[in-house]
Amino acid sequence: MHKQTHIFLFLVIAILVSSCGKFEKIRKLTDEKKKYAAAVNYYKKGEFDKAGILLEEIVPIMKGGDDQEMATFYQAYCDYHTGNYQMANFRFKKFAEVFARSEYAEEAIYMSAYSLYKDSPQFNLDQSGTLTAINELQNYINNYPDSKFREESSNLIKQLRKKLERKAYEKAKLYYKTSPFNVATLKSAVIEITNFQRDYPDSDYNEEMAFLKVMSQYELAKSTVEHKQKERYDEAVLFYQALVDKYPKSDYLKRAEKFYDISMKESDRIAKLEAEYKAALEKEKSNTSKVVGAGSNQ
């Protein structure tokens, strides 16, 4: 059994050495056409790394003709298939510029945008690349409304927007989680939730966002300075009413009702204190006027 394993490994190594040796011999060829033929052969066999290396060496020295056009096109695809999406985006875009009349020009423009889609980062990272991918895909749809890639491009844009949506959702939640008793953070949480509701009105996260908005506003009112409390409790009440109106059967309603009840009571309490204070001021003002009036009559 061990002997058979050793023989198998020896054969694999021999094949690899032979293959590498053959590839290095091809790289040393000075005949441009033979080297290109070898690159195409590697490409069709799916050995994109080897095809890419050969094309990298010969494309700059190729002059005109169909070979240069196809070599440039294959080179862009080699970058794509080996995961070098930024370079693929560049090469596809360059191909469409240089060979604007090519039958592959439209496909190249689509692939330049698709390469950016593939390069889009995870939702928790910076999403500049995602925004760029969306813009390029949308530009492609606008410029080629009847393209066979139109529907796929629209679906790709939806997927990328879902990523932006998830990023915005997590950001809004993070503000509340970071410091639920910090006034500045709570204000930011309410702002981010409001922005999310505006930017993603059809999101599946909006029911939870509506609840978090009530809770964040309540915590903000409770933690804020006294002269701003009533206004902020009143806003918590409005946010609760918006939650009820839009999601009358929400599982969050029972929890949100607690914040609503306290906000109503606190708002009423503060309103009564303000009314009593105002009445006391008016009474004091009235008494002062009477004293001043009596003094002037003496």
Rank of each mutant, 00 (worst) to 15 (best):
L137V: 02
N139Q: 11
N139K: 04
Y140Q: 03
Y140F: 15
I141L: 02
N142R: 08
N142I: 00
N143A: 10
P145I: 02
K148P: 09
F149G: 07
F149S: 08
R150N: 12
E152T: 13
S153G: 14
N155Q: 08
L156I: 02
L156W: 11
L156R: 13
I157V: 14
I157W: 10
K158I: 05
R161H: 14
K163E: 10
L164D: 07
A168R: 01
A168H: 02
A168C: 08
K171H: 13
A172Q: 14
K173D: 09
Y176P: 06
T185I: 14
S188I: 04
S188Q: 12
A189G: 08
V190R: 01
I191Q: 11
T194K: 14
T194W: 02
N195I: 08
P201I: 06
D204S: 10
Y205E: 08
E207R: 03
E207K: 07
M209I: 07
M209N: 09
M209W: 03
A210R: 06
A210V: 01
F211K: 06
F211R: 00
K213Q: 15
K213W: 00
K213V: 04
V214C: 15
M215P: 04
Y218S: 08
E219T: 03
A221L: 00
K222T: 02
S223E: 09
V225P: 06
V225G: 06
K228L: 13
Q229K: 15
E231P: 08
R232F: 12
R232W: 12
D234E: 15
E235N: 11
A236E: 06
Y240E: 06
A242Q: 15
V244K: 15
V244F: 07
D245W: 00
D245P: 05
K246H: 06
Y247E: 13
P248M: 08
D251M: 06
L253W: 13
K254W: 08
K254L: 05
E257F: 08
E257N: 10
F259D: 04
Y260I: 02
I262C: 03
I262P: 03
K265L: 12
E266N: 12
S267W: 07
D268L: 08
